[in-house]
Write a protein that binds this DNA or RNA. Sequence first.
RNA 1: GCGCUCAUAGCUCAACUGGAUAGAGCACCGCCCUUCUAAGGCGGGGGUUCGGGGUUCGACUCCCUGUGGGCGUACCA
Length: 592
Amino acid sequence: MEIQTKIQQAFAQAFQAVYQAEPELKQISVQKTRKEFTGDFTVNVFPFLRLSKLKPEETATQIGEWLVANEADIVAFEVVKGFLNLTLSDAYWSNLITEAFNNANYGKGEPTDKTVLVEYSSPNTNKPLHLGHLRNIFLGYSVAEILKANGHTVVKTQIINDRGIHICKSMLAWQRFGNGETPESSGIKGDHLVGKYYVIFDKEYKKQIAELVEQGKTKEEAEKEAPILLEAQEMLRKWEAKDPEVTQLWETMNSWVYAGFDSTYTQMGVDFDQLYYESDTYLLGKKVVEEGLEKGIFYKKEDGSVWIDLTEDGLDEKLLLRKDGTAVYMTQDIGTAILRSQDFPSMSQMIYTVGNEQDYHFKVLFLILSKLGYEWAKECYHLSYGMVELPEGKMKSREGTVVDADDLMSQMVEAARSEAQEHGSFDDMSEEQADDLSDMIGMAALKYFLLKVDPKKKMLFDPKESIDLNGNTGPFIQYAHARICSIRNRAENFKPVSEMPENAGEKERELVKLIGEYPQAVKDAGAQFSPATLSNYTYELVKAYNSFYQSVPIFKAETENEVNWRVQLSTVTGKIIESAMLLLGIRVPEKM
RNA sequence: GCGCUCAUAGCUCAACUGGAUAGAGCACCGCCCUUCUAAGGCGGGGGUUCGGGGUUCGACUCCCUGUGGGCGUACCA
């Protein structure tokens, strides 16, 4: 049990004993005592004055006296206005450090019976991944790891949008302008090659529109009638009819893209347990919509299109099948969700990591699923994150301001490499070690930069700032870890200490407190689906450690016991840094 | 138009979900390497928390309102 919860209960007990009244547990807020005051934890008595019928100071004092008399771990208290500041015993802190030192799973929750499916990538197969995908994927991966750390069983998944008009556009352009170019013949990564033809299609399409407009068509007419677009639509119909030639081309080009994605995912350091392809799920979606139509949940318009009326729920009418009977985005998503629930019958929650531009879409999706009678619909959760913006504004693929994921990652790694080179980190390293270290640092800078911001909020990506390795950054945290490893290596005669030295100073005590907060930090990050809260915690921990490291000599401590204690504190801090960073998907080096 | 959402130091972000004098990083200024990794530490300046009302013992946080951004409102995904 977390110490906060214990204090909460003790406080309630005290209230019962002193005033014969029961405060609501939720109302008892236990927080860290601010630096300006003495104490470890603070309880606010304001909400309970109507129960005690006394002034804030009197209430706090009486409760404080009871707690010191009856709770072994609480040894002193101090009252400032309505704030009751409690001081815990050294024995309590000593036990905590011993536990953190001995328990390999310190901070992680007990196994639960919950199975959570986390979707954290949903790429289209017509172009490479970009910066927006990076935030999406790092976020979802980290949330999945955090949920695991909270004891849940997690299934990581992606939905691959492999069918539709977009991929036909690339296919058509390749067929017409490609001259048989392949990733092998050109040396271009598969997803980038296919993306290149998507751009070529768009150029040709625009050219044809311009020509048609010149011939006297309106812009709208031209956009609908451009021959190359009609051909792409024809290709989609052929695909749906399983035309052998089109199918073959589709398979070939998708396979190029998957090879490209695989290498991007590898560089990102992420993995998946289960893949879903829309080409496999859209038919189930269509079937379910037909069934819903029979049940009267949906209705058909005269032109044959199928809709659902959500106006009574405060939403709009939504299309589910086009008049030609083909599926739309919503249709496929219904199919995918149902398929997943069938594949994982024990699933207790389904999380979709998707940008907040789709908030409305998921509201509608979950509502439809629940109208279709699926109980698990209420356990669906849209992990909605804010868009990534650049200093010059939004990323726009048409204007070429998209930041490519592969390019960005290699730039980060190269920046890290030259910095490490300058720093002399490679001096005793092999080439592979140097490569690995560069990768570790560059990726840490990027991941931490994207994860430290509250996922819900939109964020600004300034390339200059992201590449910075000082201050509140991933490499800053890695550096602390490397220093700790170096201390640990030096401490040959280290023996764990079971009691905190009586003369332990402020810096040490501050560090001890933060170490004690790790389990709660993991819990909070899981409850809020927020790697950012965990980043902030780790940053606080590292700052406290650096401050300690700077002002408290470790190997020149007065007694051997103190040396051991300080090495032990360092070791525990290092373990937490590593553990927390892994939950963010960030590796930590032993030297840098 | 309607719906959702955001606004905190020059810039980028925090603030334990309603609690004490709103904190960090970057940038700027000044110190600290014969103590263990200076990718570090210590100190300084910098705020009407977008404006205006309200609720509360207490508001960056909740409610109303105004202003200004973003997103959605597709037979796109």
